[in-house]
């Protein structure tokens, strides 16, 4: 999902950056509020960021014969709300842009928008929706993380198709082309991310139950 450095025309790069900045600002305020209300959540918040750090470093093989990486942003989104992941995701993407030449500074806004904003918000919406319909925690977490991951790659496809419409078939043709590169490859990887996120939530339910109750992630009485 990394759009390479310089590979969005200046107007597109500026527009996506302008769209992403308010979310990152709101996210840092949200983190400050969470830590003020719930100071012991600091370590779990950092751990959610660490999960995104690990997962976005792992380029995994897919059935399409190409490789891509999961995003890891669904976990933090369902635990702390989608806002905080705008900051965590931006840190991951900045690290990769500066040290790995993956993504870039000019495309940081677009990449933050897909991975750190759209992904977490879809994950959060799916989680709330399934929980609202009385779906089990594991099912809600799985679909949240999986669809959040997939939404990131669909967003990247839209971003590139908008900037580089196909000369013959226009935006739609380009969208199909980039979706087949990104989103199809991502389907098995998104399933893997969903399953991994369920494992983490299982471990948290076992060892950090009171913390999850404190975040109102699961019902119960705070100790």
């Amino acid at each position: 999902m990394h759009i390479m450095e310089g590979f969005l025309p200046p107007a597109h790069a500026a527009a996506w950056t302008a769209a992403a900045v308010p979310f990152v600002v709101a996210g840092s305020r949200s983190i400050a509020r969470i830590l003020k209300e719930n100071p012991q959540a600091k370590l779990l918040l950092a751990t959610s960021g660490a999960f995104a750090f690990v997962l976005s470093a792992l380029k995994l093989p897919s059935v399409t014969g190409s490789c891509s990486h999961p995003t890891g942003t669904g976990l933090g989104a369902v635990l702390f709300g989608p806002s905080v992941m705008a900051v965590a995701g931006a840190i991951v993407l900045l690290f990769q842009a500066l040290l790995l030449a993956h993504g870039g500074i000019t495309t940081l806004g677009a990449n933050v928008f897909s991975m750190a904003i759209v992904g977490p918000w879809i994950a959060y919406g799916v989680f709330r929706g399934i929980r609202g319909l009385r779906g089990s925690l594991a099912v809600a977490v799985f679909f949240a993380a999986m669809l959040g991951d997939l939404a990131t790659y669909v967003t990247t496809s839209v971003q590139i198709a908008l900037a580089f419409p196909d000369p013959a078939s226009g935006f739609t043709g380009a969208l199909l082309k980039f979706t087949s590169i990104f989103a199809f490859t991502q389907i098995p990887l998104a399933i893997i991310e969903g399953l991994l996120t369920v494992i983490i939530i299982n471990l948290l339910s076992q060892y950090s139950r009171s913390e999850l109750v404190g975040l109102r992630f699961i019902p119960g009485e705070a100790k």
Binding site: S66, S68, I160, F178, I181
Partner: peptide, 14 residues
């Protein structure tokens, strides 16, 4: 190029 990165493939397609 078996198992090349999707990011690079997108760049090539552009």
């Amino acid at each position: 190029e078996p198992f090349s990165g999707a990011d690079g493939q997108a760049e090539a397609a552009i």
